[in-house]
Amino acid sequence: MEPVVNIQGLHHAFGKGQLSKPVLLDINLAIQPGEIVILTGPSGSGKTTLLSLMGGLRSAQQGSLRILDQELLGATKRQLVDLRSRIGYIFQAHNLLDCLTAQENVRMALRLRPSLSYDERTQLSTAMLDAVGLGHRINYRPENLSGGQKQRVAIARALVTQPQLILADEPTAALDSQSGRDVVQLMQRLAQEQRCTILLVTHDNRILDIAHRIIHMEDGRLIRTERPAVAAV
């Protein structure tokens, strides 16, 4: 099967000329459909840069980067925008729109699908909020939700489009251990139901056990891969 993520010989540097500072060096990585991969490592090791390159949020500079059958090296702006809409993002901060209710926030991701009617969009959003356990909070605005609830709305927003790939940057960083655990298990369960691939950047040792593979990163290189004996399924 074609890997969802296929990275070969990826280099990336910030700055230009004399001041150029390499952040990613010779990255090679393939992630298969349905895999849950955790990327971990100290701050400044290049995790977030790698994630943002995979998400089409930065332009690739050197090497090959194929995500969901789209080569990102030399991709046009239009192709990047299109790719982004096929990926589910979960941010460290929840990044919900303050002016919209939970349901409206989730529906924002579906507004890019003109094939769905308004009623279908609403139905899907409500169903997804139900799935993350917020069926009773659909008309609340972010300011009236707890940290964990907001992160669950963000997960619902990322998953409602049924993406084949979810990229998550420290989704549990702002949460206490119980809600962090809940959020991750939720992602795991929904990912299995929708057969999607998850790449998770985290420092959080408490959630490492959900991964099929844990990749350690240091100084811009992937240095070690672990396969936990039993991935908690």
Binding site: S85, F91, A93, N95, A109, L112
Partner: peptide, 15 residues
Amino acid sequence: DHLSEYATLKAIGYS
């Protein structure tokens, strides 16, 4: 004030 919200929308596929 809403820059991060707009950036989020860009990240989820808004042009």
